[in-house]
Design a protein around this nucleic acid. Structure first.
Length: 115
DNA sequence: CTCATGACTAGCT
DNA sequence: TAGCTAGCCATGA
């Protein structure tokens, strides 16, 4: 019996859908995205999917680590790109760290689907 | 099956 | 805040 009830083949699609569901100017964690995708505990899977993704329409830059930091190593290409995009959306990025992401997530709870 | 790798997380110091 | 350790999941050799 499948304890999660989700097709592994559709898992990546769910992850991408969850990422696209993040409103502009807001951020979410890998674990949160996986959870919203119906894949609790698969934060690493979410990261894997994003690393494979090539869709420029995907707001991957809104996905951060649980501690509110950019997952890329500081100084890396992806790091600069993500920080740049976040700032462009009004998200405060300081030294690779996003300004109080938990606060943003709290406000999202109403919009995301727990209502 | 065991080992290694990775855009992860939580706990402890 | 920063660094380290252990745990967890998926893939490939």
């Amino acid at each position: 019996m499948d304890h999660s009830g989700i097709d592994p083949a559709s898992a990546p699609a769910r992850i991408l859908a969850a990422v696209r569901a993040i409103p502009r100017g807001q951020v979410a964690g890998y674990g949160d995205v996986a959870r919203r995708a119906g894949l609790p505990g698969r934060a690493r899977l979410a990261a894997r999917v994003l690393s494979m993704n090539t869709d420029p329409k995907l707001p991957w830059h809104r996905v951060l680590r649980s501690d509110g930091r950019i997952a890329f190593p500081a100084g890396s290409k992806g790091f600069a790109e993500q920080a740049k995009r976040l700032k462009a959306e009004g998200v405060a990025v300081r030294n690779g760290r996003v300004g109080m992401p938990a606060r943003e997530l709290d406000l999202d709870a109403e919009v995301w689907g727990m209502r």
